[in-house]
């Protein structure tokens, strides 16, 4: 068995003076190259978990190791540097709406370039060419100089993927990447993520709403309920009973194609 790439130990996150517990003592390991899917109801702590991993949210307790580095111990400056290795895409895409697609993609290189240059909007030629190649990869080369808010939802999410690609990441965090998209577009976006996982060997942690998508793309699934880890195993292991346990008694599985 290979050395685990990402280790999460006893992760706990408490908001607002002890009144809201978002994560309760969550522990798991991820090996390099895995496509791990996190499922659970809204508010079960999926987003918090992902954001703790690149420390957009500071964990209250627990430790996280990535590639042997204890990132929960890094100083803010070191963490900033480390974040270049972790790509992230978001439910609502989080693009600069009024800027061009090109600018949006180039922001993926911010961590690699000197501050004063990026403040003036100057990026090296190599970065620009990389940006265009990545845009071609997600099939949006023609849209390079179009404003981001002129694109459709699926296209915007692909820009988000291109932005993450710019970081040349080892790990990709995808926070409900397809929740805001319709079923057909969902699959196209998921396939780009899968491509990253299989061709570039990027380890992927994706939170998903639909179990069917999780089964189709994930190599492993973990499930959160009220901030607790309630399942960790292969996609096939989730049967009807498990499903009810995660989503509650009244839930009914919906197929998304």
């Amino acid at each position: 068995m290979a050395e685990p790439y990402l280790v999460v130990e006893h992760l706990t996150k408490v908001y607002e003076r002890g009144h809201v517990v978002a994560l309760k003592d969550v522990s798991f390991e991820v090996r390099k190259g895995e496509f791990l899917v996190i499922i659970g109801l809204s508010g079960s702590g999926k987003s918090t978990l992902l954001r703790c991993i690149n420390r957009l949210i500071e964990p209250t307790k627990g430790r996280i190791f990535i590639d042997g580095v204890e990132i929960t111990k890094l100083s803010p400056r070191q963490m900033r540097k480390f974040r270049r290795r972790i790509g992230m895409i978001f439910q609502h895409f989080n693009l600069i709406k009024r800027a061009t697609v090109m600018t949006n993609v180039l922001t993926g290189r911010l961590g690699y370039n000197p501050t004063w240059k990026t403040l003036l909007g100057i990026f090296p030629r190599s970065d620009r060419e990389l940006a265009l190649r990545n845009l071609e990869r997600v099939g949006l080369l023609e849209k390079a100089y179009v404003r981001a808010d002129e694109l459709s939802g699926g296209q915007q999410q692909r820009v988000g993927i291109a932005r993450a690609l710019m970081q040349e990441p080892e790990l990709l965090l995808a926070d409900e990447p397809v929740s805001a998209l319709d079923p057909a577009t969902s699959h196209s976006v998921m396939q780009y993520i899968e491509q990253m996982n299989q061709e570039d060997g990027v380890t992927v942690l994706a939170s998903l709403h639909f179990l069917s998508l999780a089964r189709r793309y994930g190599t492993r699934i973990i499930a959160l309920k009220d901030g607790e880890l309630v399942f960790d195993g292969a996609p096939e292991e989730i049967d009807d009973r498990k499903f009810k346990e995660i989503y509650g008694e009244e839930a009914e599985e919906v197929e998304i194609r």
Partner: peptide, 29 residues
């Protein structure tokens, strides 16, 4: 929108870069 700030921070940008790429584009207009 704090989402964009998150997104830019997640790329490893520092505070000034976050200001330039996540805050300013949202407030210019």
């Amino acid at each position: 929108d704090p989402g964009l700030i998150e997104a830019i921070t997640a790329t490893g940008a520092n505070r000034l870069q976050v200001l330039r790429y996540a805050v300013i584009p949202q407030i210019v207009n």
